[in-house]
C-alpha cells in the first residue's frame, strides 16, 4: 500500500502521527513527513489515520500503475 498526503489541506494537528507513528511524523512544529510506501503490518493503522484526519488529506491505495511494471 502507498500513501500520499495533500499537504495543502493538512493542518498539522498530528492525529495521523499519533495513530501510525511509523508512517507519519511531525518535523518541526507543523510540517508532516511520511513514508509513501508502507509495510503491510501498517495498513490497518494507516487506514485508521486516514479516517481520523480532520481535513481528509490522506490518500491510501494500491501503488498506481503497479500493473504496468
Amino acid at each position: 500500500m502507498n500513501v500520499v498526503v495533500d499537504l495543502n489541506r493538512c493542518q498539522g494537528y498530528a492525529q495521523c502521527a499519533f495513530l501510525a507513528p511509523q508512517v507519519f511524523t511531525m518535523h518541526g512544529e507543523e510540517s508532516l513527513l511520511y513514508t509513501p510506501v508502507i509495510a503491510e503490518d501498517q495498513d490497518e493503522r494507516v487506514r485508521r489515520a486516514a479516517a481520523a484526519c480532520p481535513v481528509q488529506a490522506i490518500v491510501v491505495g494500491k501503488e498506481a500503475g503497479s500493473g504496468a511494471r
Binding site: 513527513l33 491505495g61 501503488e63 498506481a64
Partner: peptide
C-alpha cells in the same frame, strides 16, 4: 509508474525514505 516529487527534496534527501519509494497511491 507515477511517483510523488515533493518528498524528493524532503524525506529522501534527509535519508528517511529511499528515492525509489515515493510511488503514488
Amino acid at each position: 509508474p507515477p511517483y510523488d516529487r515533493p518528498p524528493l527534496s524532503k524525506q529522501v534527501l534527509l535519508g528517511k525514505v529511499p528515492a525509489e519509494n515515493t510511488g503514488l497511491p
